[in-house]
Nucleic acid binder design. Sequence first.
DNA 1: TATGAATGAGTGTTCATTCAT
DNA 2: GATGAATGAACACTCATTCAT
Lengths: 213, 213, 213, 213
Amino acid sequence: MSCPFKPRWERRKDARPQELLDAALDHFVARGFAATRLDDVAKSAGVSKGTLYLYFSSKEELFKAVVRESIVPLLGEAESLIEQYEGNSEELFRLVMTTWWENVGASKLSGLPKLMTAEAGNFPELAKFYQEEVVDRGEKLVATMLKRGIARGEIREMDLELAPRILVAPMIMMMLWKHSNGVCFVEPEKLGGYLDFYIDMALRSVLIDKPIN
Amino acid sequence: MSCPFKPRWERRKDARPQELLDAALDHFVARGFAATRLDDVAKSAGVSKGTLYLYFSSKEELFKAVVRESIVPLLGEAESLIEQYEGNSEELFRLVMTTWWENVGASKLSGLPKLMTAEAGNFPELAKFYQEEVVDRGEKLVATMLKRGIARGEIREMDLELAPRILVAPMIMMMLWKHSNGVCFVEPEKLGGYLDFYIDMALRSVLIDKPIN
Amino acid sequence: MSCPFKPRWERRKDARPQELLDAALDHFVARGFAATRLDDVAKSAGVSKGTLYLYFSSKEELFKAVVRESIVPLLGEAESLIEQYEGNSEELFRLVMTTWWENVGASKLSGLPKLMTAEAGNFPELAKFYQEEVVDRGEKLVATMLKRGIARGEIREMDLELAPRILVAPMIMMMLWKHSNGVCFVEPEKLGGYLDFYIDMALRSVLIDKPIN
Amino acid sequence: MSCPFKPRWERRKDARPQELLDAALDHFVARGFAATRLDDVAKSAGVSKGTLYLYFSSKEELFKAVVRESIVPLLGEAESLIEQYEGNSEELFRLVMTTWWENVGASKLSGLPKLMTAEAGNFPELAKFYQEEVVDRGEKLVATMLKRGIARGEIREMDLELAPRILVAPMIMMMLWKHSNGVCFVEPEKLGGYLDFYIDMALRSVLIDKPIN
DNA sequence: TATGAATGAGTGTTCATTCAT
DNA sequence: GATGAATGAACACTCATTCAT
């Protein structure tokens, strides 16, 4: 709280290797919590299984750390971007979503939604954390963007509680596709097309003057 | 004999499989494949663990059966509905999505997308099956609806490969929300609001003449 | 005891189907007691698994019955044959062993030694029964033969406690070979050669005047 | 530390496999493959059940290892003994068989024939391995001994394909007796008598000049 | 008498967790 | 700190046994 750089969850070691979390994220995203073997995580990280326990007291703690550490960098940039932006709503929405996709969707962080979708029921506290730190914050961010557009007369009036989640849904789905091998498979090179199309559709549903594209 | 509580052995073989699949779907959706214990599934279905093996040769086969049996009846209705419909595109879209939500989204079948999202990586063949029998078929259905609207001059020209998936994404997300306890939690009574809002947004993004609503 | 035709173990049903015992013997011989599934035995006999329990109260009882019923016809003939025989020892030995092989070695009863070898440790009472009814009786039979030969001056003096078992060993081994697929495999058509050779060897070791052959 | 009772974790990895194989051999010989519980094997070896899986990937692999590791040291000595021997055939045969009995028959390795007899049908590949590495090699060894005796004019001409197996049969049977509790039971102290008697009988059947004994 | 669906104890196997080194 | 052998609870799966029909 008073320490601005220390997240609320306790670090056991300051030098807690990021490699472990990286390796763990890969496996958790690919196979889910239960099906992930710590043996495999350890092997991927190039350490022994016992070493994992030097940094995380259990598989569950490792999982929580993976999620929490992954979440940190997610939303900060976008929030400040919106606050400072001076252009019109269409450009802002395009910029935010494109940046989001480049920074998150294209990185391994895109696995988080899949992870939380699959495991929320098994990790209620973690789900709550995710809900607050990502979902709520993300929706507030979009609501801010919409409110700004309405104030500028670029975006029509609408229910600002419902709109963000519906508006963002396709973006989330695109991240799920990336990690649902075979289901809703989209060739990586086509994802860009989906992104543009999605932005276009979203703008058409909120802008007063439809974009030309 | 006259006892109102049927003794265990009196259950009919014909009724069993569906009871088992129902119980299994509940557990698989709630906990995922690996974390689901067959003991629990059996208990939920009111049978012993051994009985499961009379009907499904392994946990994996049970899982596959759950997915396959759940989706078969899903899409037929919608397909014939579209074929026969004579009204305009807005009404058709509203009808299809509302019906879909009532039949699928509001039932336990809504758990399937979560299941496949979480487990696709662990069951490649099943993922392929799901992709072909559900995803592809569902998208074709939406594409047909759009094509029909374009022909009738009600819907604008658009990329019919990209549009269905983007258009449908919020509907899928709504189903995921239902089963991601805590994450994106939506109070059940609010889901109706989301549904209407979603339909409105979707229509705005495709109709030539915006709906009034 | 007082009933000359009723063996000492109790029959549960007079009409106890021989088919069940036959099928069971096949499986027990082929796979051993523990690895034999009653499902398979039932299927081989063309009945349901439940039917087995109409005739045998447990797998163990079935096994015992198989062994006991199989043993019955084993030794009676040979005993009376020896008693009545009037020729010389060489001819008698040849006759007894050849007959034995034709009646037992060539039939499915040849599986008994394998069965008892494998399961004696798990069925002590059955082992005792087999020991008394087959082994001891068989050795006494051979001892009688030898004693007769010694009295007739055809066979050398020897330890009549040790000799029978050693003398008969190769015959037992030949029965084991038949049922030890792959181990000590002997082509069926060669077994006859082994039989003749064995008889010749045995006679050489006991006759005072070596046979010519 | 200075505690005379070694704590569990201090056992060396190198020593483990052989301890496990020893314990497993005991149980497999006593009860057969199917009836042997890995729990019991582990307990006999003083480890937990899971430890077995550090060394053998399955019960079947453990069984195979037991057989394979047991036979390696079996035949080498006898082969070189025969090659170098300079005395007459009677002495050689006595020496080989006596040594064999001391080294194999009197050790727990004597359980192998029983094991293979009982389980050959369930492990075809293992049976083949045993046949080639033990049975064939053993018979070749005896054939060599006989050929040598024939060349020296001490042993009569005979079919060298049939003779070894028949000649050796009683020795094998003696090993089976040891492990067929109750069937053909021979008091341990009498086995020596059987051995001498067997050697005498065997020699009488092959030597040109009968031994005096 | 015969059936076969149902049971549940038993066992092979996995894997998170521990701990002496 | 790091290791990896060892543990044992947990769980998938089997199969002898039961019993209403």
